[in-house]
């Protein structure tokens, strides 16, 4: 057992855990943050995507013992109460959500993309979500949502 301290969704947290526990299990079991999903456990599907120090990572491949001092953000941190983040709203408005299982990971990958590249083109959007498998939507409406969000944020920042 280790005493682990890190930043989770903007707050400093500490937790007692085994070091070899995967970040996804830590989030779901110790913090009840079940928005992070498991689809494969081997880094292929992206359902478990979270932000680690602002970068998208597969939480099924990060171990608790590797976290010390890291800053982790999950899907639960995006909306402020009833106020959805523009990405979330655009996912809904563009029909980008079907079963919704890939959605949290997908939104976080998109979030990390826009953070780094506020005006991605279609190829860049595809690349950014290529590690997030979606079996329902065929990706089209997801890409539309990301594009729309980028446009919206850019016009606001002008």
């Amino acid at each position: 057992m280790i005493n682990l301290k890190f930043k989770l969704n903007g707050e400093k947290v500490s937790v007692k855990t085994e070091a070899g526990v995967r970040l996804i299990d830590l989030l779901r079991n110790n913090f009840g943050l079940t928005g992070t999903k498991e689809g494969c456990g081997v880094g292929e599907c992206g359902a478990c995507t979270v932000l680690m120090n602002k970068k998208a990572v597969n939480s099924c491949l990060v171990l608790a013992g590797q976290l010390a001092g890291a800053s982790i953000e999950t899907i639960e941190s995006l909306a402020e109460g009833e106020m959805l983040h523009p990405l979330q709203r655009n996912f809904l408005e563009h029909g980008a959500v079907q079963c919704g299982y890939c959605t949290p990971g997908m939104i976080l990958s998109a979030y990390a993309l826009l953070d780094e590249n506020p005006s991605p083109d279609e190829e860049e959007i595809k690349e950014a979500i290529a590690g997030n498998l979606c079996r329902c939507t065929g990706y089209k409406q997801i890409m539309d949502s990301i594009k729309a969000t980028a446009d919206e944020l850019n016009s606001k920042n002008k």
Binding site: G43, T49, A56, N58, L61, L113, A128, G131, N132
Partner: peptide, 9 residues
Amino acid sequence: IGSVQIRNR
């Protein structure tokens, strides 16, 4: 290599 998530790690 892999995906963005993989390349970040």
